[in-house]
Design a protein around this nucleic acid. Structure first.
Length: 791
DNA sequence: GCATGAAAAATACCC
DNA sequence: ACGGGTATTTTTCATGCG
């Protein structure tokens, strides 16, 4: 009997010392099925010492066979490591949990140098070896089984074949449950040992909404109802915001305290923390949308409400938001309690909306990279690239290198030109398309094509990187060349398919999500190559890529100059030139022909303003919009008042060409601030805590603010954004810092914001037009001069 | 002891 | 827990002066 299904999640179990792969899927008939595969035997490799014969080492291992009862067989094999042929022995092991112990013991056998691939988890090994990726359709030969009564599922069957990929694009009708949670704590962060959950706001993509409330702070029933709700809806995907970091741990803590079990999975166990610090719920995909927050670099403070606002899910102006510090007060006030309920309800609405907006991307990324949907968000970019590489390594017989600690040695990156300060008219930005990936392809740069200085010149010849002199085999094509070309081709194909599709159609949305996923991995490949934590780390690979890039951009600049195109600025893979349509188009063609990389005009600015600094400019686009790069406006660590000032100044300078209007605009803002007419929230400065508060070498303002919050009982961890304001008083800045939710407007040192926020941000632009810092201060009716001259 | 300027620490950006 | 290049602010340190 055949079963067709969409792969939701995978895990493994060991039953009577026999491993089982559990594949959770949704069938074509929209049934929830569990396919159990008992046939997969996992393995790892022994790498031999130089000059050892595989057969002899196998014999040595066989002599100690009784020490390793779960080894099925030993198989000499020839594979490659970093492109070099290597004799290995493949060790099949019937119990995956014994691999760490066995590999440790076997690596001590005479003639064995080390083990490889002993750190690949059983369930991932199964997916990789059988070319199965999550979030796709499969067909498998099965037989029915029973006797697994604890499992909440429509059907359990045993696999009689390996699941085979079926070409089918659509996502099945998934059941998605989202929830948000509010706990009650009089002071500081809630602790599960003492503080109850007071609200669980639950919603489903089938339109059900429920507010579970612990009226008298007794949350036993609330959690029971939650478990009941989950069980009856039986979701495939459970979503929330901050669930991996907080909510599941909290709910588990509460359940333990109340003497109950949090059975929200399909097997009857509790959620457990697993790989990459993600919380796993058997049979369901637990997706924490916070793990995808990094996909939105424009959102500086990555709260649920800010991301929802950014995606247009729910506008900030329309939201009910209650600060953590105010929650107990609001809850205990009968007039304000409804606001807390609305807050929770809206949080869950935002969660549902954000998932709707980005689930396609998450699923496409999961499918491309091969990590299950519940892990893909948590995995850092480097690991996403690495899993994609691992899958492709198999195709070329390349072993997966071990992960090891290495010393950090810096190397040179991209070239950045000194801009010509001032306003320039009619400027085009010419970009090399996917420069680093294309250089790697063009020069065959790869961990497996690198020819170290001690090696002789290979027959195929080598490409030699400029400046650094690293050599790469010309032939055969390397690992990266294969992987990157495939990614670039796949992306181009998708873009071709776009044509003729409605942007709102499901097909378009899925294709768009896939091309975004491909782009993310392609662009991250270079960064991966230079990451010392990478399994395939080879410093010359990264170093040669940037060396070639510098060489190419310099040649491009020279050619542009010789063509009579004025180069105003450039950064890594781009040049900014005075725009002349015909000349530019011709120039791009010449570059493509001579350099072999595609170059295209990206943006054309009617006007562009540069200060003396690199990486900071503001362009005026033909549609009248400002494109602000690097300046305070786009930085998250300046108060909004400073950012708004600078943006206003830029508008007046570029659209009205009026430094005097801009100066008056600054005066007005300063006067408003001095009268405290500017909203308090525009004075908050946000900075990230990048290490534990105690670990800092100096006393920094945001760290001192964090310490105050800690004193008040709030939990802060690395990565948290600290919002603070500067209060009046004497001494260093860090002595006058207050967390914004613990300070009042009256306490704020308005003059700090004038001198250290507004003036610098405005002056950055206006100093180009001979406006001095003192000119930016509004002239008061009685100046010091008036005052003195009066007597 | 204090003003001053350079160096170091820290952060967030660009591509 | 992907790279290097860069600007900027605030703290800290070194130095010279008296």
């Amino acid at each position: 009997m055949k079963e067709r299904f969409w792969l939701l999640d995978v895990n493994y179990e060991i039953r009577d010392n026999h491993p089982e792969i559990w594949i959770w899927g949704i069938s074509e008939e929209n049934k929830r099925i569990l396919v159990i595969d008992r046939s997969f035997v996992t393995y790892f490799y022994l790498v031999l010492e130089e000059g050892e014969t595989p057969g002899i080492v196998v014999e040595r291992a066989m002599q100690r066979k009784n020490e390793f009862p779960y080894i099925a067989r030993l198989e000499p094999s020839k594979l490659k490591l970093f492109g070099k042929p290597l004799d290995v022995i493949k060790v099949y092991c019937q119990n995956p949990d014994l691999i760490p112990r066995y590999s440790k013991a076997l690596s001590k056998i005479e003639g064995v140098r080390k083990c490889l691939e002993d750190d690949i988890r059983y369930s991932m090994r199964y997916l990789v070896d059988n070319d199965i990726t999550p979030c796709g359709w499969y067909e498998v030969e099965v037989e029915n089984t029973n006797g697994r009564p604890l499992i909440q599922i429509d059907k359990v069957c045993l696999a009689r074949s390996v699941p085979k990929r079926v070409q089918r694009e659509e996502t099945p009708q998934l059941r998605v449950l989202g929830f948000s949670m509010i706990c009650y704590s009089q002071k500081g962060a809630p602790k599960p040992e003492k503080n109850p959950v007071i609200i669980l706001a639950v919603a489903t993509n089938y339109g059900e909404e429920k507010q579970l409330v612990a009226e008298n702070r007794n949350d036993k029933e609330l959690i029971e109802s939650f478990v009941e709700f989950v069980k009856s809806f039986d979701p495939d995907v459970v979503i929330g915001y901050g669930t991996n970091r907080q909510h599941w741990q909290y709910l588990l803590g509460r359940s333990a305290k109340l003497g109950m079990k949090l059975h929200v999975d399909r097997v009857g166990t509790e959620p457990h923390t697993s790989l990459y610090g993600h919380v796993s719920i058997r049979g369901r995909a637990n997706v924490d949308l916070e793990d995808f927050a990094d996909e939105f670099p424009d959102v500086k403070v990555k709260t649920l409400e800010n991301i929802a606002d950014h995606l247009g899910v729910m506008r900030l102006q329309k939201r009910t938001i209650i600060e953590d510090v105010d929650l107990p007060k609001y809850w205990d006030d009968p007039n304000k309690r409804p606001m807390v309920l609305r807050f929770a309800e809206e949080n869950t609405k935002c969660i549902m909306g954000i998932f709707e907006a980005m689930s396609d991307f998450a699923m496409q990324l999961s499918q491309l990279v091969g990590l299950p949907l519940d892990q893909i968000g948590r995995a850092a970019v480097g690991f996403r690239v690495e899993w994609y590489l691992i899958r492709n390594a198999r195709r070329i017989g390349e072993l997966i290198p071990e992960r090891k600690e290495r010393p950090y040695i810096p190397y040179a990156g991209g070239a950045v030109l000194q801009p010509k300060p001032g306003i320039h008219e009619h400027i085009a930005v010419l970009d090399f398309k996917s420069m680093y990936p294309n250089i790697m392809i063009e020069q065959n740069i790869s961990p497996d094509t690198y020819v170290s200085p001690s090696e002789p010149q290979p027959q195929s010849g080598v490409n030699v990187a400029p400046e650094v002199g690293h050599r790469f085999r010309k032939d055969p094509p390397g690992f990266y060349k294969m992987v990157l070309s495939n990614l670039l081709i796949a992306r181009d194909e998708i873009r071709r398919k776009f044509k003729g599709l409605e942007t709102k159609s499901i097909e378009y949305r899925v294709l768009d999500a896939r091309q975004k996923a491909i782009k993310v991995i392609t662009n991250a490949a270079y960064g991966y190559a230079g990451w010392i934590g990478a399994r395939w780390y080879v410093k010359p690979v990264a170093e040669a890529t940037t060396a070639w890039a510098r060489n190419i951009i310099q040649n491009t600049i020279d050619m542009a100059t010789n063509t009579g195109l004025d180069v105003i600025y450039g950064d890594t893979d781009s040049i900014f030139i005075r725009y002349d349509r015909e000349k530019t188009e011709e120039f791009c063609k010449v570059i493509e022909r001579k350099i072999g990389l595609e170059m295209k005009p990206d943006k054309v600015y009617s006007l562009i303003l540069f200060t003396e600094a690199k990486k900071r400019y503001c362009g005026l686009l033909p549609n009248g919009k400002l494109d602000i790069v690097g300046l305070e406006v786009v930085r998250g660590d300046w108060a909004d008042i400073a950012k708004d000032t600078q943006e206003g100044v830029l508008e007046l300078i570029l659209k009205e060409r009026s430094p005097s209007k801009a100066t008056k605009f600054v005066h007005k803002l300063i006067l408003n601030l001095r009268e405290r007419k500017i909203p308090y929230r525009d004075l908050i400065i946000w900075k990230t805590l990048t290490k534990p508060a105690e670990g800092y070498a100096i006393k920094a303002p945001h760290v001192e603010a964090a310490k105050i919050l800690k004193e008040e009982g709030w939990d802060l961890t690395v990565g948290d954004k600290i919002g603070y304001v500067i209060a009046t008083g004497s001494g260093r800045l860090y002595e006058r810092v207050k967390p914004y939710m613990l300070a009042s407007y009256e306490a704020v040192d308005v003059e700090y914001y004038v001198t250290n926020q507004i003036i610098p941000a405005a002056s950055r632009i206006l100093s180009l037009f001979d406006v001095k810092e003192e000119d930016l201060l509004p002239k008061s009716s009685t100046t010091l001069f008036d005052f003195i001259s009066k007597d």
